[in-house]
Design a binder for these strands. Structure first.
Lengths: 146, 146
DNA sequence: TAAAATTAGTTGCATTATGCAACCTAAAAT
DNA sequence: ATTTTAGGTTGCATAATGCAACTAATTTTA
């Protein structure tokens, strides 16, 4: 079924696609945590159930945010990779992390706070660019079978 | 009940608070659309049900993103206003709109596309600053009864 | 000042989304 | 040839969201 949109507002429309508990988390796992298979995503700290993961991967693919392909020389393992449309979500993720860093530590003190967070605070545009660059290099290394 | 967090990831933690269909839409209505009362929010294009609105306003207040106060000289009408923590969500909203503008028009051609979108495209930081400045001026004009 | 309208909700019930545990199939590894 | 692994599906439980009707207090109107 096609995506439903509540109205013509650009803010709201993004949330019609992305506004749930899992969509952006999965994008983050692919972009930031280096995950690329169903198994990777299942085994994450976030602990998504396999039926939910399956459903969300379908939605992400329908939305054009990820593409599903096979690992080279392997008929079993699927690769889930971000498209350009999915990579373009990087600045949103970066802003989410900045807000967490600045405004969530009081109620969630164990949020990670190492070197990468210092980089993020220091120059968010550079942080986003670095994430995108790293991911594009990974794509270039991956023998991509569309 | 206190907020539950899935893990210590700053990306995921923001989504534990904000990742649903309504939280950021309500923040947008307050920040961008100039809404401030229960009635305003109900009457929006997004058409939220009153029980859901009621529940989400409670959550937003518990999270410290909005504060509830009374309209001056009026015992009936409640004002919902963004706190600093809520105003700090502006860059997230701006990035969501940029992504919609650039990547959602193919599947949702009626997304608004006027003068404000041109400003957004041209300088997103200035756009965010202008939104925050306008809101702070509005707060200054509002006789605030905390 | 009494009646009408407005604001800010609540309540009960239906539908949809998410979560859990068990299960299945095909491919890969042993 | 057998076992293990990857990528799911299925059935059922719980939680989130949606709809329509209703209420209570305040404010406006007559």
């Amino acid at each position: 079924m096609p995506q439903k949109f509540r109205c013509d507002c650009p803010f709201t429309s993004a949330l019609d696609v992305l506004g749930d508990k899992w969509m952006l988390v999965i994008v983050k796992q692919l972009l930031v945590d280096g995950m690329e298979t169903f198994k990777d995503l299942r085994a994450s700290d976030e602990a998504i159930a396999s039926n939910i993961l399956s459903a969300k991967l379908k939605l992400l693919e329908e939305a054009g945010i990820i593409s599903k392909t096979k690992k080279p020389n392997n008929k079993k393992t699927n690769l889930y990779l971000l498209t350009d449309k999915g990579l373009a979500l990087t600045p949103i993720l970066v802003e989410l992390a900045i807000w967490s860093d600045g405004h969530l530590r009081d109620i969630h003190p164990t949020i990670v706070n190492g070197e990468p967070m210092a980089l993020l605070r220091n120059d968010k545009a550079a942080f986003a660019t670095a994430l995108e660059k790293r991911y594009k290099e990974k794509l270039a290394r991956t023998k991509y079978i569309p």
